[in-house]
Design a protein around this nucleic acid. Structure first.
Length: 303
DNA sequence: AAAGCAGGCAACCGCAATTCT
DNA sequence: CAGAATTGCGGTTGCCTGCTT
């Protein structure tokens, strides 16, 4: 799975990692242990086990309780991330398929660096995976002097993307013909970046399906969800999702929120205010009160 | 064989958003 | 209404592996 998990686990268990701090940023091997500080760095199999057991018993949410009640010496944030990116059921591992890559292109053309939003359209994929994939692509294309998008995917707006800057979020159109045509035919191998200072406008078109109608999982301070006794499954082959964009249809209307990684996390709220984020508190409460049986969550509805 | 580079990946941080008290 | 607590998101960093030179 990961390049270093095995060896890292051994090192951890044998206490060979120095409790050093590398300053800001993440990355493997960053381990802090001790009575006062919570551990950082790569997760061990034992820690994973503890976390999975906790979630199995108590469900997701209240991540700080994990640390308090399970003996896991990790901050809640770290646990949540670990669960979301690695331990959740139905996570797809491995490289992105061509369809997924195409969809990422389309979604990025439309939304910019909205990884969580993109992940919601890619069942089994995490925002982190997508982000990593995209950043790698950006690096490669930049080095090759190629445009970020194939010529047949036109990012609306005249702005260019920069991996480190906020992209324009006001797409006008997305034109997609055949994203996997050889990109070497691109007529204009320009790859210019500029910071997004002129386009702070974040008026995203209302994303119709954003309402988090499907997530059973916790929102801050909500009652704990019931324990997860069985996890929904996702069949990428037979899923209407995959077949829906396997054809040549360029459209990818968001009829419904895609099932988020099989066992959806919390009601997705997206920055920059699309959809759910701007529900009034009252509306949110109503939505949250509308509990959804677990089995419904496993059966995404597509139009 | 060794060094350099690119890609892949995991995990951190800061901050925003949301809810509860 | 304000502040605290919690969760989610996006940016960033650093390690590991495999390929190329």
């Amino acid at each position: 799975m990961t390049p270093n998990n095995g060896s890292v686990s051994v090192l951890h268990s044998e206490g060979m990692w120095p409790p050093e701090s590398r300053g800001s940023g993440g990355g493997g091997g960053y381990v802090v242990e001790g009575n006062d500080c919570l551990k950082k760095g790569p997760w061990t199999a034992a820690e994973d086990q503890i976390l999975m057991e906790y979630v199995r018993k108590h469900g997701e949410g209240n991540w700080n309780e994990v640390q308090r009640n399970s003996g896991l010496n990790r901050c809640g944030k770290s646990g949540r991330l670990r669960w979301a990116n690695h331990l959740r059921p139905n996570l797809k591992k491995g490289s992105f398929s061509l369809e997924e890559q195409r969809l990422i292109l389309e979604l990025h053309a439309k939304y910019g660096n909205k990884w969580a939003r993109m992940a919601s359209q890619l069942p089994g994929r995490t925002d982190n995976e997508i982000k990593n994939h995209w950043n790698t692509r950006v690096k490669r294309r930049k080095r090759q002097g190629l445009p970020l998008y194939p010529h047949d995917i036109k990012q609306s707006q005249q702005s260019h993307f920069h991996s480190q800057t906020i992209p324009s979020l006001t797409p006008l159109t997305t034109i997609i013909q055949n994203p996997f045509q050889p990109i070497t035919n691109c007529s204009t191998p320009t790859f210019s970046f500029h910071t997004q200072s002129q386009t702070q406008a974040h008026h995203l078109p209302p994303l119709s399906p954003t309402p988090p109608s499907l997530s059973p999982l916790s929102s801050p301070h909500r009652p704990k969800p019931t324990a997860l006794t069985s996890f929904p499954t996702f069949d990428p082959i037979n899923s209407p999702t995959s077949s829906s964009f396997s054809s040549s249809t360029p459209s990818f209307a968001f009829h419904r929120p895609a099932p988020i990684l099989g066992a959806p996390l919390h009601h997705k709220r997206y920055r920059d205010s699309i959809g759910f984020s701007h529900h009034s508190p009252q509306t949110r409460k109503e939505i949250l009160q509308c509990s959804v049986p677990a089995q419904c969550l496993a059966l995404p509805h597509f139009n």
